[in-house]
Design a protein around this nucleic acid. Sequence first.
DNA 1: GCCAACGTTGGC
DNA 2: GCCAACGTTGGC
Length: 149
Amino acid sequence: MAYWLMKSEPDVFSYDDLVRVKREGWDGVRNYQARNYMRVMKRGDLVVFYHSNATPPGVAGIAKIVKEAEPDPTQFDVSSKYFDPKSPLDNPRWDWVTVAPHQRLTFIELERLRAMKPLQSCQLLARGNRLSVMPLTTKEFSAIVKAGS
DNA sequence: GCCAACGTTGGC
DNA sequence: GCCAACGTTGGC
């Protein structure tokens, strides 16, 4: 099993929202590196659900992958802000995965994540990091779950 | 293929 | 709201 971290702005879609809707296609990823990570995610992989652009930012819970990558329908929806006129219908550029809630955590603020030893080399904490989907090591994942349990 | 301009992300 | 960092775009 693999572990991941995915960012969402809670004003747009929070961990609570995921609990409410039970499962959700992770739409709107428009970055190739993030997309490529989603393409290798497997059903059952666990995902740290991170609240970005929030006050404070931090980890809200754990989600799981319930459906593997498939074309993100919003890329073809002219009324969507994620519409991509350059994505060919016969060769969609962007994918999504479907996630479901797995375990709620006590909110772990970014400040606390920064202080955690096992996370020192995590991409999330790297200067200037903007990637919204990234892999985590088993050690990093366990440390986060432990901190929020 | 280079690179300046531009847009976006995300912490503060 | 500011701004540093970074990805993308487009002219050449």
